[in-house]
Design a protein around this nucleic acid. Structure first.
Length: 535
RNA sequence: GCGGGUGUAGCUCAGUGGCUAGAGCAUCACGUUGCCAACGUGAAUGUCGAGGGUUCGAAUCCCUUCACCCGCUCCA
């Protein structure tokens, strides 16, 4: 299977189009066509129904430490700018980068260190990526530049300590970390990964705001509101589906990395002592969700982050990953991250931006000893009125990409098999084996031929089923071709009105995957389809 | 952001300076047909990705630009 045939089918059948295609398209933006919008809606609805509205809050679910509540939320895309300063996104997403004109490499401005050095009567500033081996790298670069051997190492006259590149104003005498000639580094340029906009008519910095780069923060800042208005006890999960925006440097791989995308996120608030158990519960529960909707075990993996990849506050983070066809053998792309976030987010919105690098999660301070970004000052802790214990809840965050999930379902569904044609000759059939729950069209209704009153009966069946499901009517061309068209659309069932229908009020229902046809009564159509979708 | 490749009908592609830009598949109509991409007849379909230039003449050569694919880079 290759990605091109999937992309081609998506366009041909109306799953996905390039945004603004008639103007040449816009990198990182995609539109969902008539079939695509149904598919994506079904994915989101399955998630919302399974996680929120259909959640059983009376029982202790398998793998869970206790019963828990779930609520939904829908927050704005533009929020108070301070939200992103305290969450850490503002600092993280405003990188200054320098490019090397010679090697075409790009570096983060603040992660390049260097030192003045003199040899052969010339003084240069030699640089290296910040890290344990930076002095080694500096020496090597210097020797190479001056065409000196290791034995001349003592001839190098170092001037001053290793300092960050940010201390320099002019890069003319700077040797890039991997460069051979001086002055190859560009001026630092700002990379804004958050989309910037302006609130109010004035477009000055005072009105500057950002499109959200994730939906999660809306949940954290509303935590108190949800608790107060619903009277829930912890543990409580709050769910949200919505658009997020990231100005990716290189959008690629169809909709996998888009600049505008939709997230399905849960922030699950619980007692710190139980957070580890809840983390494991959510990790396993979310993996099973993809599995139940038809992603095969071979293509789906759970990747636990290593201890050294984790932030200090986190007990664990696991990525649920899918073997997308555009990835190389053995590589996977992230569908969802499930992370234990401790009390980092709530405390950041209370006290101000915390330093995720410090072991005790201290408030991040400026040089003058004041908080770098001030929090809301509001108390977001929780009082358990049974035990009278007061604590800042810990959070488990299952954060899924709706577009990535939709793309994974499309890739997983794409199948080419061999089926005999009219003459018994084997023909390649393209079929989207989407799970019936997420299939855009649940059933297609055909008259076998366009005469003898068959279209009239078929239209009645169609109009009746339309009240319950997304269905499709087609009477054009040979019935075999109509079946194949529905196979490409992923329609799980085709109902055909034939000669016998006119005699005994029965129709045939054809299964997309097995091609088996069974004869059922017209009045049974709705319940048969409903039962089969539920399976 | 850098390097390489690609861009012609809905899809897959042919067309290397010269007549009104083609093929297969798909689409639509009529007829035939009775369950898995049928057949016959007919029809419609293009700013040759966009803009500019060279030329008597450009899909074709040159420049700019946009998008997609691959490799870097990036990916909280």
């Amino acid at each position: 299977m290759n990605m091109d045939s999937i992309v081609s089918l998506c366009k041909r059948r109306g799953f996905l189009f390039q945004s603004s295609e008639i103007y040449g398209g816009l990198q990182g933006f995609w539109d969902y066509g008539p079939l695509g919008v149904e598919l994506k809606r079904n994915v989101k609805e399955a998630w919302w129904s399974d996680m929120v509205n259909g959640h059983d809050d009376m029982s202790t679910l398998s793998g869970a430490p206790s019963p828990y509540s779930m609520e939904g939320l829908d927050c704005t895309i533009i929020m108070h700018p301070q939200v992103w300063k305290c969450s850490g996104h503002y600092d993280l997403f405003h990188d200054h980068m320098v490019d090397c004109r010679e090697t075409k490499k790009r570096y983060r401005y603040d992660q390049i260190n260097g030192r003045w050095v003199e040899a052969k009567g010339r003084k240069i500033f030699v640089t290296a990526p910040a890290g344990d081996e930076e002095q080694e790298h500096l020496t090597k670069q210097t020797l190479k530049f001056f065409k000196l051997r290791n034995k001349h190492i003592d001839d190098l006259k170092w001037d001053g300590p290793v300092v960050c590149l940010t201390n320099l104003e002019n890069f003319d005498e700077v040797l890039g970390p991997d460069a051979k000639s001086l002055g190859s580094l560009t001026e630092p340029r700002e990379f804004n990964l958050m989309f910037k906009t302006f609130v109010g008519a004035l477009s000055g910095e005072e009105g500057a705001a950002f499109l959200r780069p994730e939906t999660a923060q809306g949940i954290f800042v509303n935590f108190k509101n949800v608790l107060d208005s619903t009277r829930h006890r912890l543990p409580l999960g709050i769910a949200q589906i919505g658009k997020s925006f990231r100005n990716e440097i290189t959008p690629r791989n169809f909709t996998f990395r888009s600049r505008e995308f939709e997230q399905m996120e849960i922030e699950f608030f619980c007692h710190p002592d139980q957070s580890q158990e809840w983390y494991r519960y959510w990790r396993d529960r979310r993996l099973k969700w993809y599995h139940d909707l038809g992603i095969s075990g071979d293509n789906l993996i759970m990747r636990e982050h290593h201890q050294d990849e984790l932030a200090h506050y986190s007990i664990g983070t696991a990525d649920i990953e899918y073997a997308f066809p555009f990835m190389s053998e053995g590589e996977y792309g992230e569908l969802e991250g499930v992370s234990h976030r401790g009390d980092f987010d709530l405390r950041s919105h209370m006290e101000g931006k915390l330093d995720e690098k410090s072991t005790d999660l201290a408030l991040q301070l400026n040089a003058d000893g004041k908080p770098k970004w001030k929090g809301s000052g509001k108390d977001l802790s929780y009082r358990d009125d049974l035990t009278n214990e007061k604590y800042v809840p810990h959070v488990i965050e299952p954060s899924a990409g709706a577009d990535r999930a939709t793309l994974a379902f499309l890739c997983e569904a794409y199948t080419e098999d061999q089926q005999p044609d009219e003459k018994g000759k084997m023909q390649t059939r393209t079929v989207m084996k989407l799970h019936p729950r997420i299939a855009p069209i649940k059933a297609a209704i055909f008259p076998l031929v366009k005469k003898d009153g068959m279209p009239e009966v078929a239209k009645e069946v169609y109009l009746d089923l339309k009240k319950h499901f997304k269905v499709f009517y087609d009477e054009k061309g040979a019935v075999g071709r109509r079946y194949r068209r529905q196979d490409e659309a992923g329609t799980p069932y085709c109902i055909t009105v034939d000669g016998q229908t006119l005699e005994d009020q029965t129709v045939t229902i054809r299964d997309r995957d097995s091609l088996e046809q069974t004869r059922i009564k017209i009045d049974e159509c709705e319940s048969v389809i409903r039962d089969r979708i539920r399976q």
